[in-house]
């Protein structure tokens, strides 16, 4: 199975091309955040190095959020359009799980988090089970302190990844169990790892209806819903074909 895996959830851009369990080409770039410009050229380059055409692909694996709204839309638009237009499979993975997959320690507890400003984070807690990150606290947009308190309940060492350094002091004072020192490399998505995991995962049922996992309403919608609590209209019905 020929797989393309992509992640542009935050500043890093990560692309990998795999043939079953063989990683043919992989790249992670952090020197810029111009995903709109660079994602497709990188895909083109990596497929070219692997001597593959887009039509050779069987499956696209995408980190579908949470993350920067624009970032996850670029990866998801690219992935769903490829899958839809080539009629191939689409697999979606949490952008946080993508980071957790960097930890190769069976049984480890991993807490990947992205800084969402004002002491908020996108975060989840994962346990590595049979080499696969399995969610024990679901990805959420949450206050860093309440997240750390929830993590502390486990009374186990936790691998903090992603933007954890932004909250280093808080983590050290809140989390009692020793947290492993990690290589900065592990803070970056290595999308080849989810490419490998993505082989086993169930593809998205309806590619055309697939959207990123923002984990947050827009401010306008949140305010509108607060003012209109009884309106439970399906999002789809706001868009009409004319």
């Amino acid at each position: 199975m020929k797989i393309l895996a992509i992640d542009t959830s935050n500043r890093p851009l990560s692309v990998a091309v795999l043939d079953d369990s063989t990683v043919l080409a992989a790249i992670t770039v952090t020197v810029h955040q111009k995903h709109a410009e660079y994602l497709l050229p990188e895909i083109e380059r990596l497929l070219g190095m692997a001597d593959l055409k887009p039509t050779d692909l069987d499956r696209v694996v995408v980190a579908a959020g949470p993350g920067s709204y624009t970032g996850i839309r670029i990866a998801v638009t690219t992935a769903k359009t490829l899958a839809s237009t080539l009629d191939i499979e689409l697999v979606a993975v949490s952008s946080l799980a993508t980071l957790a997959a960097n930890v190769p320690v069976e049984g480890a507890l991993v807490a990947p988090l992205f800084d969402a400003r004002n002491q908020n984070v996108f975060a989840g807690l994962y346990r590595i089970k049979d080499g696969v990150p399995t969610a024990v606290i679901a990805d959420a947009h949450t206050n860093i302190t309440s997240f750390l308190e929830a993590v502390t309940e486990y009374a186990e060492p936790v691998w903090f990844l992603g933007d954890a350094s932004h909250f280093a002091d808080l983590i050290n004072t809140t989390v009692s169990a020793a947290t492993p020192k990690i290589s900065p490399w592990l803070n970056l998505p290595q999308v080849a790892t989810i490419g490998l995991l993505g082989q086993e995962m169930t593809p998205v049922k309806d590619v055309d209806r697939f959207v990123p996992n923002y984990l947050r309403l827009t401010q306008a919608e949140a305010e509108w819903q607060a003012k209109n609590p009884n309106n439970k209209k399906d999002n789809d019905s706001y868009v009409e074909k004319i």
Binding site: T70, R73, V76, T77, T81, V211, P212, Y214, T218, V239
Partner: peptide, 14 residues
């Protein structure tokens, strides 16, 4: 609202 617009576009485009 720009963010809402972007979210609808990705729902509809394919």
């Amino acid at each position: 609202v720009p963010e809402v617009a972007s979210r609808h576009h990705i729902e509809e485009v394919t």
